[in-house]
Design a protein around this nucleic acid. Structure first.
Lengths: 215, 215
DNA sequence: CAAAAATCTTGTCAAGCGTCAAGATCTCTG
DNA sequence: CAGAGATCTTGACGCTTGACAAGATTTTTG
């Protein structure tokens, strides 16, 4: 046994390494294209994004898309999964650092406002894709994954707040998420409609809602 | 003076009537097309609806659209305004009939559930169009009109509830609307994803939120 | 280094889009 | 009823789309 048998000589090992490298490269290209797609989707919207647009925002030509993805839909799915990985990063560290209800309340509200300001178009895209999933059943699965992730994030905040405030939450996890989602979506729409003050409004509302959920 | 001068003889009056009839007919055709457009948008979505699709759901051929509308966008705008007229009808009568907090709470929750069940695709379309308005600034105006209408409707319910419960509301009008919108949108997504039980969940949540807003 | 495999570019295809214009058809007017 | 005007159909246009295939180019293999 061990790693030096007749069937696993140096040649074989080299081949394995090569295969792994090839796979990695393949996945890396897919990631690259998906990233270009995210950029494009963010500023042009699902309805107005063509595969050529996406390729133009990448180092490659339009034909390459079909080399790495079978379909426009498959690209979209990969796209959304990729978005998912970054979308709740900031929030968890707030949970760890906050030690008082007030701190958590304001930290969370801050984070929401930052998200609104710094990732405006990215979240516009999220809502656009989620809407698409109401028409395109192939997207339902991936969208649900992210929705779940976001719900869990909100719930971690709410239940931690409940701990710190020593008061039980008055709402279930899905409801808490729906409410915060409603607030954020409204703020986003207003923000994009040319009302920058909606950011500060969102801050107050987020903090207020948290206080309301655990009186 | 009066209506029988030399310039306003029978001929003139007939002409006026004809003109009015022509105008009415013109407006009626626009309404007819807008209605077909609403049907089409509701089941195919903004991204997948062409002017030919719309014409196919109408008694006319595709060319006629450009006889009554200068533009696809103008049709959309007319469309949305038309949707607006029906979208909050049911709710006001609940306000008039309810005499106790419980009655209002359950009446309102009922109405929301009915809307979810009976006008599923129509409201999917509403969210689709509202999303489009984040990319297409020509739509912002009309969308805001409806958003305002919906907000006012929610606010009438909340403040009436506050009266009946003899307890001041803890939330502003925009916040109340955002929260209910969040609940409804979530229920709609789940409902369309094949979870009919989300209707009953929505009922409980709507009633619960009202109770929470005015403790 | 040469053959083979992987990767990328380019050009093409049919289909569908919004828009428009010419002319058929219907309706009203004098 | 004849002519005029309003209304509607039909077919066409230039363009974009997702998809694909043939071949150029690069990378890997023996």
């Amino acid at each position: 046994m061990g790693w030096m048998t007749t069937t696993e000589g140096p040649a074989r090992r080299r081949q394995v390494r090569a295969e792994r490298a090839a796979v990695d490269k393949f996945e890396q290209r897919r990631a690259e294209l998906a990233s270009s797609a995210l950029t494009t989707l963010a500023d042009r919207g699902f309805a107005n994004t063509s595969l050529r647009d996406i390729a133009e925002n990448s180092p490659y030509s339009h034909g390459v898309v079909h080399y790495y993805f079978s379909d426009k839909l498959e690209l979209m799915q990969h796209c959304i999964r990729q978005y998912k990985q970054d979308c709740v990063k900031h929030y968890d560290e707030i949970l760890d650092t906050a030690t008082t209800p007030k701190e958590l309340r304001e930290g969370f509200a801050d984070a929401m406002v930052m998200t609104l300001r710094d990732e405006t178009t990215l979240h516009r895209m999220w809502y656009d894709l989620r809407n698409q999933s109401m028409y395109t059943c192939e997207l339902v699965g991936v969208i649900q994954e992210i929705d779940q992730l976001l719900e869990q994030m909100v719930w971690r905040v709410v239940s931690r707040y409940s701990e710190l405030a020593e008061s039980p939450s008055r709402m279930s996890s899905p409801v808490a998420y729906s409410l915060y989602d409603g607030l954020f979506l409204r703020a986003l729409i207003d923000y994009l409609a040319g009302k920058p003050e909606s950011a500060e409004t969102l801050r107050r509302e987020c903090a207020g809602l948290l206080a309301m959920l655990c009186p």
